[in-house]
Amino acid sequence: MIRFEDVVFVHQNGVRALDGVSLDIPDGETVAIVGENGAGKTTLVKHVTGLLKPREGRVLVDGVDTTSVSTARLSRKVGVAFQNPDHQLFSESVREEVAFALRNFQFPEDMIEKRVKLELGQFGLAEYERSSPLVLSGGEKKRLTLACILAWDPGIVILDEPTVGQDAIQKEKLSETIRMLRSQGKTVIVVSHDIEFLWPLQPRTIVMKSGKVVGDGPAKECMLDSEVLRSARVAQPQLVSFYRHLSERPADPFVDPLDAKRWLSGGRAG
């Protein structure tokens, strides 16, 4: 469980990046955080990892106040893939990159061997095992950061703009990975501008604006609130916009184009 209690964070330049945020994220929930650039999304997730500590209020991860534990200890529970993979890749080879945290967490060597193989295979990086992370493309680096985190099996996985630089095929794989993590009971927090990527996942959606939470609920409710979306400069998924422009419509917006087609042809037959 992640709990934010009236959290305020102020940057050195005086900007209130978090301005009284209160939230509960129960274990196993998939959460999307959306909002324009500068709304406070990345600052929020950095509080979960303990990289930033609140100026006012408290952040609790599994009941533990993040100011009372080291970031290193928290990271056993919380894995985060930042927006810019260059900020977290530094080893000489791809395999060493994945093994790094596992060594720090004192996994036995044979276990490390197995986890590295498993994760590199999972993310299509096996052929680069001995290459330097620096030769990878932007999309491959992003997948490597994800492989590194999942290797140590944290209960909370945070992905900050995971779809940037990924093509449609890689996005589909990423979407499958998120579904897999969800079925493993992990808490997954995705910060993204890519509303069309988020929509089929139907996450709980938190809308942020100027350091405040201005919308919070199931994707189906949040994404229908055009007022809130407009004020937070968040785009509406195309299928929700289509749904809104129908004169008659079903109770819930369409998740997939096929749902829309089925409903329309059913309606016509009747």
Binding site: D167, A168, I169, K171, E196, W199, P237, Q238, L239, S241, F242, P257, L258, A260, K261, L264, S265
Partner: peptide, 20 residues
């Protein structure tokens, strides 16, 4: 789609509806 192009949701729906 075979070439990994992300066809927008509204376009996929338009294509489905155009079949009928």
């Amino acid at each position: 789609e075979l070439y990994g192009i992300a066809v927008p949701a509204a376009t996929r729906l338009q294509k489905l509806l155009a079949k009928d």
